[in-house]
Nucleic acid binder design. Structure first.
Length: 419
RNA sequence: GUGGACGUAGCUCAGAUGGUAGAGCUCCAGGUUGUGGCCCUGGUGGUCGCGGGUUCGAGUCCCGUCGUUCACCCCA
């Protein structure tokens, strides 16, 4: 009988890593608050239709990467593969269009995709994300991008670059897609098998194909930037200007098309060179048609998601100095263990982080643990020479000792803490 | 879904040409019966991923399988 291991593509965060993760999330939360974003929590699973309609039937995510199952009521449910559609669903369901627009939300949640794991890619991964729903103004695009840039700066994510593109909208994209399709059909013989399929399904996807022959063809293909309608062009120019004002240096990248169908106009991605093949740490864009697509009123929105695992991989490592407890209570006699236990409870109640031997160690062993735990003070209980009611308080760095009435210990520790 | 590399104690790894398992770290205990993270000594801990095969004999060779990992694909 072999022991059970964590499922493929998942991982455990042991205390040191969990503490680092908490630090990242706390840093992000402060930043979100500064920008006026409030946290939203949505379910881990949704009706399958939300993603099929929202993310797009033609996307890889929907076609082959979703964890979909029937529950006991024969409902088709799917573990959330991405964060935007659920937040939009909640926006519609709770009538958030009655709030001041745009509604600015953030989330920290696990995402599930059935993929082959590799560096920086998991079947359950965590994303930090924001969505600003209800305004189509370029300032909103710029704000969310600036926010993500600020987050990477605050976390010291190494060697990040910002790539941006515009995907056009319902007014100009359809005509452009047809033009692109026509061009690619003419060069069909030079394309790889995948791209020949994409040709019919979604020719835009060929732009991020890595096959050399395809890249050569796409280099010569008509570019969306040259076929944007006036509104889209103007919007994109304003976003670029504002993003630059925020101190970022966006690089235009006509290959940046992203694999979710809901994107319109602005798309962007931050990548880090230290990551390997999966270089994108965070990315997103505008999705002005999504809410209508999932059955709500036509409502513009823009947002991004950023992968916690990839952030952790690309952060310049900051050693977290896990502090030791304030006190370690040591019993010097077996019949003192109960009062040691009670004393530890008393100290914890007074707000001091307190450890106590739970393994039946000898006094020497307990003191050794106190040292290894880097406790500031050891509290010695049950010494023969102590007067009743007294314990001995020893500083673990200096070694200085004093005998204190047990009942007065919290006050004495507080006083020492003041010094 | 495709391809490459790898799978020996909790962790990092050693085990030439097949002969029946080791180190360091961790953990635990001792170092004169009641006192510190270092040091010293000892100890716990392994169906050598799993299943077949070849062989008198396999951790070492072959096949399969599962897992890890890197890349493709796609994305965070």
């Amino acid at each position: 009988m072999s022991a059970i291991k964590a499922p493929k593509g998942t991982y455990d965060l042991l205390p040191d890593d969990a503490a680092r993760r908490a630090h990242v999330v706390a840093t992000a939360a402060r930043l979100f608050a500064a920008y006026g974003y409030r946290r939203v929590v949505t379910p881990e699973f949704e009706e399958t239709g939300l993603f099929a309609r929202g993310v797009g039937e033609a996307t890889d995510i929907v076609r082959k990467e979703m964890y979909t199952f029937l529950d006991k009521g024969e409902r088709s449910l799917t573990l959330r593969p991405e964060g935007t559609a659920p937040v939009c669903r909640a926006y519609v369901e709770h009538g958030l269009h009655t709030w001041p627009q745009p509604v600015k939300l953030w989330y920290y949640a696990p995402m599930f995709r059935y993929e082959r794991p590799q560096a920086g890619r998991f079947r359950q991964h965590y994303q930090l994300g924001v969505e600003a729903i209800g305004s189509s103004r370029p300032e909103v695009d710029a704000e969310v991008i600036a926010l993500l840039g600020a987050l990477f700066e605050a976390l010291e994510v190494a060697d990040v670059r910002l790539k941006m593109n515009s995907m056009g909208d319902a007014a100009c994209r359809p005509a452009y897609v047809e033009r692109l399709r026509g061009f690619l059909r003419g060069r069909r013989e030079e394309l790889c098998g995948d791209c020949r399929e994409r040709l019919e399904l979604n020719p835009l996807r060929s732009f991020d194909c890595k096959v050399a022959s395809c890249r050569a063809v796409l280099d010569e293909a008509p570019r969306i930037a040259d076929h944007l309608c006036d509104d889209c062009r103007s919007h994109f120019e304003q976003v670029l200007e504002l993003v630059s004002l925020a101190g970022l240096r966006p690089e235009l990248d006509f290959r940046l098309v992203r694999g979710l169908d809901y994107y319109t106009r602005t798309t962007f991605e931050f990548s880090s060179d230290v990551l390997g093949a999966q270089s994108g740490v965070g990315g997103g864009g505008r999705y002005d048609g999504l809410i209508e697509q999932i059955g709500g009123p036509a409502t513009p929105g823009v947002g991004w998601g950023a992968g916690l695992e990839r952030m952790a991989l690309s952060m310049r490592t900051l050693p977290l100095p896990a502090p030791g407890p304030d006190a370690f209570v040591v019993s010097f006699a077996d019949d003192a263990r109960a009062s040691a236990f009670a004393l530890a409870q008393q100290l914890r109640g007074a707000g001091f982080t307190t450890e106590l031997d739970l393994a039946g160690r000898s006094p020497k062993g307990q003191l050794k643990q106190a040292g290894r735990s880097r406790a500031r003070y050891a509290v010695l209980v049950g010494l023969d020479e102590l007067a009743t009611g007294f314990v001995r308080l020893r500083s673990m760095d200096g070694g200085g000792e004093e005998d204190v009435l047990a009942a007065a210990l919290p006050a004495r520790l507080a006083a020492l803490h003041e010094e």
